[in-house]
Every structure is written in structure tokens, then in C-alpha cells.
Design a protein around this nucleic acid. Structure first.
Lengths: 148, 148
DNA sequence: TATTGTTATACTCTATAACTATA
DNA sequence: TATAGTTATAGAGTATAACAATA
């Protein structure tokens, strides 16, 4: 026999206080990271991150970033002008263009990651091991539930 | 006598892996919240949140939000057009204008908070009590270190 | 005809510079 | 003169509509 009480099945409404704390923490940290790492704009940085997993078409990138085709076209053009990606026509379908990370682009991506991670690491440097362990588990939970 | 070993004093560099996990979680959640709660734009929502603590001048609001005076002037104008704030000349210094939350503004703020919190709460609804406890402690730590 | 990507155009949020009113 | 706020103008990032090239 299974006994289900109100306490054992929290509803969405019950979780609002913790949701608020988590939301405010996430928004605050995301904003601070953005404000303190101006080297490569977020919308270009994330495109390079997608390309690290392999070359992609402009359409693929637009779908992954959930932006329109013209927006991605502009982003890729800017990345190409800065030498961070290259565009080549797909030999099997000449309408498509394959976007590839250049070695310079790979370096820019790694530097951008390093800048962002060091900024956050510096914030955490006085935390205790227990605090850091809780934080890591919390972050992993968030990534799990957000990314389905 | 105090013995300090390398393990007991983690450096900023040691914290990079956890910093990355936390950063990615925060950015991912912040982006999802923004994308799923379009009722009131973030830059207007945060102005209303400041005003909840009491009336303020446009200059105060610009400083708190770290935006320029013209940017805040535009935001306040839009909020006033939408009936969410009112502007009155400061009787003690006619150069300044006091911005005050209207009752409609207070309702919009509460609704905006509710939309955002419910979105996050829904993501967390299948988590265990232990996971939620870790998450809350992690979020509180982040708010502490970010907000000095 | 349908699809891929680009160009043309416009909207939003941001900034700096110039201006108005007041101290 | 200096300060608080607004208006004028411009740049970055986004969108939809129209277009070119290819399937």
C-alpha cells in the first residue's frame, strides 16, 4: 500500500519560493558574466561553440540558436570577416554553405571560455568545500531539467 | 600551529571546472526564463522591481540599473505611457522628477514575477527533496558572492 | 515549385552629444 | 557654472519580406 500525502508530492506552486531564489541567482550571475567578459559577444561565442562539435550549415546554426535565417547569416558573415569561421559551398547541394571553425576561431572560443570561467571561479574562491559541492549538484540539476 | 596544504587552499584555477558548470547552468536557465516570459521586457521589469522598494529619481534608477541617463529616461517614459509608473516634479529641486509605482505597475510586477517563478518551478517539479535542498543552498551562495 | 541563403528594411535597446530648465 | 532630465542621432542585434540561386 502506498500512502501519498500532500507533503510528499510538492506541486509547482509549492516550489515558487525556491524557484525565485534559483531564478534570481541565475539571472544575476548570467548578467555579471556578460558584463565582465566583453571579448566576444554572446551571440557569436555560442555559434563558435556549436561549430566546435563539427561543421554545420547556416540553417542548422539558426535552428540550434533559435534565431532567424537572416540573423544567423549576419552572424556568420561577421565571424568570417574576423577570420573565425570559413564558408564553403556544399558539393552535394550548392544551395547550402558549410560553416567551419578556423584554428583562429578555435583559439577565440577557448579564450572566451577561459575569460568567463575565470570570472566565475574568482567569485567562488572563498567558498567552503561543502558549499562548492552543493553548488555543483545544484548546477547539474539545473542543466538536466532545462535541457530536458 | 596551522598547517596549510595545497588541497586546503584551492586557487581560482582549481575552481574552473565547477565554475564552468555553474556558468552554463545560470546562462541556460536565464535564457530560458527570458524566452518563455515575454509579458514585460527585462529592462522594464527590473525598473519596477527597484521602485517597489520606494519612489526614486530617474538618476537613481539609471545608477542602480547601470544604464545611461537617456536610456533610463526612455524606459521611464514607456512605463508612464503604459500607466505602470507616474512622474512628479520634486518640490525641493524642480530639476528632479520622482518616479513612483502605480497600483497597475505593482500588479504588473507581481504578475511578471509569478510568470517567471512558475516557469522555473515547473522545471523543478520532478526533483527530489535532497536535490531541491542542494539547489537552494547553491543559489543562495551565488547570490551572496555576486552581490558582494 | 520548394528550399537555402542573402539583401532590404524596420524595430528595440543601448550609447554619446547637444539641449532645456533649474540650482 | 553645474546638474537633472530630455531630445537628437547612431550602433548593435533582432525580425519579416523580398530576392537570387539551386534542387
Amino acid at each position: 500500500m502506498i500512502i501519498v500525502t500532500a507533503r510528499s508530492v510538492p506541486t509547482t506552486t509549492d516550489l515558487i519560493p525556491i524557484a525565485r531564489e534559483v531564478r534570481l541567482a541565475a539571472q544575476s550571475l548570467a548578467r555579471h558574466v556578460k558584463d565582465h567578459t566583453p571579448s566576444l559577444a554572446p551571440h557569436l561565442f555560442t555559434v563558435l561553440a556549436w561549430l566546435e562539435e563539427g561543421a554545420a550549415t547556416a540553417g542548422d546554426l539558426a535552428a540550434r540558436e533559435r534565431v532567424s535565417a537572416p540573423t544567423m547569416s549576419k552572424s556568420v558573415s561577421e565571424l568570417e570577416e574576423r577570420g573565425l569561421v570559413s564558408r564553403t559551398v556544399d558539393p552535394r547541394d550548392a544551395r547550402q554553405k558549410i560553416v567551419t571553425l578556423t584554428s583562429s576561431g578555435r583559439r577565440a572560443l577557448q579564450q572566451g571560455r577561459k575569460d568567463r570561467d575565470l570570472y566565475v571561479a574568482a567569485l567562488l574562491v572563498d567558498s567552503t568545500p561543502d558549499e562548492l559541492a552543493d553548488l555543483l549538484r545544484g548546477a547539474q540539476l539545473i542543466r538536466k531539467v532545462v535541457e530536458q
